[in-house]
Nucleic acid binder design. Structure first.
Lengths: 206, 206
DNA sequence: TTATAAAGCTAATTCCAATTAGCCTGATTA
DNA sequence: TAATCAGGCTAATTGGAATTAGCTTTATAA
């Protein structure tokens, strides 16, 4: 009964490693433990499997947005938390968040798959930009705006601040996606980044 | 006689849009203006075309490194230039460089192709990291180190400074690769970024 | 000026991967 | 308990894409 979902899982794994067109229906079936023609009892064709993965991601995204009160959805709440934080706590938080996005199996695979497929279809490119660029920048911008108006941080443009905070994270994430053995290095660099960000925009200055 | 090279050009164009396995030998031939079997007079098979593209890029890279005195290869020379620059000149320079990487046909297509293929083969992933992450960061780090020791800029870690300068450029580049219509927006953000970078690490501070 | 090689073409050939046809079994349900 | 359905299987079928065979032409070079 959950074969239908197993198919999505295994397909996502394969798509994230080789890209849609380098994965054969046979490969997916083999991993699920059935024969290729049996797949068609669950999905109309290969493309439908891909589409279902995308649809599921959209659903997860909506679900998450629904549940407020959760990390990354309520800038006011988060800002309140951060404003009392020490630098070490901030680093800890940033690192944990980074590692969460890096390690969570579903998130990681989906990100890699979209990376591969982003130019094939404009809607996938748009999804990529939204998920990994615009949404994070918007959210961090809101967060920073609150922290600035509360006097916790100082900066002229929260848009630029958000870019300064987020883009190193993004860059480091892509490094680790390509080569997980560089994770330790990435964490070290990330620490330096957050420390410096805090110094540049932080409490002590001006 | 230059059919051999035309093939590489057209193949690169197609690979950068759809990825290796979604491009058919037929498509390439058609664009070149010959029939598919004629391609085999020039290259052993489809993979050989791909390999030749990679090899050509390596060659170009080496050639460029050979020719010192050129933008992006001699940090001392570049540092000397930058140290006398006004903020506006700096922005102009950064924007021009950004636009160069964004618009240069060969560079752009190659970058997009590597983006698509980076996970298929570790050597491609390594090439990506080198070209678009490690080399730029190393170079900018050297440049910044010179500017810091000359007292033009102030910062504790040139590694982190390089990350702060470069990663927004990288992020903006990926946005425009996915959606060229966002170029104007990217330039605007880039300006804000450089201005802020200059303010944060620049002459006036401390 | 004849032989040769380079580069093109058409017509196979080969191989594979996606999908369909049609059968079987075991659970569910009227 | 008989009918139905879900979900699996094997054995085709289909279609497409890479590559090969073998012919032709034109330029080059002995």
């Amino acid at each position: 009964m959950d074969t239908k979902h197993r198919i999505l899982e295994e397909a996502l794994t394969l798509f994230s490693e080789k890209g849609y067109s380098n994965v054969f229906v046979n490969d997916i079936a083999e991993r699920v433990g059935i024969k290729a023609p049996s797949l068609y009892k669950h999905y109309k064709n290969k493309q439908a499997i891909f589409d279902a993965i995308i649809a599921e991601m959209h659903q997860r995204f909506l679900d998450q947005a629904q549940v407020l009160n959760i990390q990354g959805n309520d800038p006011f709440r988060d800002a309140e938390i951060y404003s009392g934080f020490s630098e070490e706590q901030l680093i800890r938080l940033g690192t944990d968040l980074f590692l969460y996005y890096l390690h969570d199996d579903y998130i990681k695979k989906f990100r890699k798959m979209l990376t591969i497929e982003q130019f094939r279809d404009p809607s996938l490119g748009a999804a990529y930009s939204k998920l990994y660029v615009d949404d994070p920048l918007t959210y961090q911008g809101q967060l920073l705006a609150i922290l600035v108006s509360a006097g916790v941080l100082h900066g002229e443009s929260t848009e630029t601040m958000a870019l300064h905070f987020y883009s190193p994270l993004y860059l480091l994430l892509t490094i680790c996606d390509r080569d997980p053995s560089r994770e330790e290095e990435a964490i070290r660099i990330l620490e330096g980044h957050i420390r410096e960000f805090n110094r540049l925009y932080g409490r002590t200055k001006e």
